Amino acid sequence: MATVKFKYKGEEKEVDISKIKKVWRVGKMISFTWDEGGGKTGRGAVSEKDAPKELLQMLEKQ
């Protein structure tokens, strides 16, 4: 499965696309949330040019 790689608060992170729940556009950035388990929700953002095609497809479906 595809993953999204991004930096959050200076830390490199990687999230499996299948865990992503919500995707939206903020200017030229793609923001998203995912389920971290245990009732926690993670947040992240990646530039439109660095976003994997699967993430962009999720954005178009909404």
Rank of each mutant, 00 (worst) to 15 (best):
K28R: 09
V46P: 00
K53N: 07
R25K: 11
L55H: 00
K21Q: 15
E11D: 04
T41N: 12
S47M: 07
K21C: 15
G39Q: 10
F32T: 01
V23R: 01
A45L: 07
K40N: 09
E36S: 08
I30S: 00
E11K: 08
V26K: 09
L59D: 03
Q57P: 07
K61H: 13
K49I: 10
I30M: 05
I17C: 05
V23S: 04
F32S: 01
E60V: 09
G39I: 09
E12L: 13
S18R: 05
L59F: 08
V23W: 06
M29E: 13
S47P: 13
L59R: 06
G37E: 09
E48H: 05
G42R: 11
E60F: 05
K49W: 06
K7S: 05
T3H: 03
E48K: 08
V26Q: 07
L55S: 00
E60Q: 14
S18D: 12
K9P: 01
E60L: 07
V23G: 04
W24F: 09
D35H: 09
M1H: 15
V4S: 00
R25E: 11
D16C: 08
K49P: 09
K61R: 04
Y8H: 10
K7E: 07
D50V: 07
E54R: 04
E54S: 07
K13T: 04
R43K: 13
G38N: 09
F32R: 00
E60K: 12
G37Y: 09
D16E: 10
G44S: 06
A51C: 14
K40D: 12
R43G: 08
K49S: 05
E14K: 03
I17P: 02
S31A: 06
E54W: 05
S47Q: 09
G38V: 08
S18G: 12
K49R: 10
K7Y: 06
G42K: 11
W24P: 00
L55P: 00
K9M: 14
R43V: 11
P52I: 07
A2H: 12
V15A: 02
L59H: 06
E11V: 11
G44H: 05
S31L: 05
T41R: 07
K53W: 09
G42L: 13
G39D: 12
M29T: 05
D16T: 06
K5L: 02
E36A: 04
V15K: 01
S47E: 15
L56M: 15
I17G: 02
A2W: 02
A2R: 05
R25M: 15
E48M: 05
V46Q: 03
G42I: 08
S31E: 13
Q57N: 09
E54N: 04
K28M: 08
R25I: 13
D50Y: 08
M1Y: 10
V4N: 00
S31Y: 08
F32I: 07
K61E: 11
S18Q: 10
V26M: 11
E11I: 12
D35E: 04
Q62C: 15
W34R: 00
E12G: 03
Y8K: 02
V15T: 03
T3G: 02
T33A: 13
T3Y: 03
K5G: 01
K40F: 11
F6R: 00
G10W: 01
A45D: 14
G38K: 04
P52M: 03
M58H: 07
E36Q: 11
F32E: 00
G42F: 10
E54K: 04
K40H: 13
V23Y: 08
G37N: 06
G38R: 08
G44I: 06
F6W: 03
D16H: 08
Q57D: 10
M58V: 11
W34N: 01
M58N: 05
S31I: 07
S47A: 14
M29C: 15
I30W: 02
T41H: 14
T41C: 14
K49Q: 08
Y8S: 03
M58Y: 05
K22W: 15
S31N: 11
A45M: 11
K40W: 05
I30L: 08
K61G: 14
G27Y: 12
G38E: 08
M29D: 09
K9T: 01
I17W: 01
T33P: 00
K21A: 14
K22A: 15
I17S: 03
E14T: 08
M1R: 04
G10Y: 01
S31P: 04
E36V: 13
V23F: 05
V26H: 07
M58D: 03
R25G: 12
R25S: 06
K7F: 07
W34D: 00
V4I: 08
L56V: 12
G39L: 15
K40C: 15
G27L: 09
L56Y: 11
T3M: 05
F6A: 03
F32D: 00
Q62Y: 03
Q62L: 12
I20G: 00
Y8C: 14
V23H: 02
E54A: 05
V26P: 03
A2N: 12
W34A: 01
W34F: 08
K13N: 03
K22P: 02
D50H: 14
L55E: 00
G42D: 12
K7N: 12
K28Q: 13
A45Q: 11
G37R: 04
V26D: 14
V26E: 14
I20R: 00
V23D: 00
G39H: 06
K5N: 02
W34L: 01
S47H: 14
K53L: 13
E12Y: 11
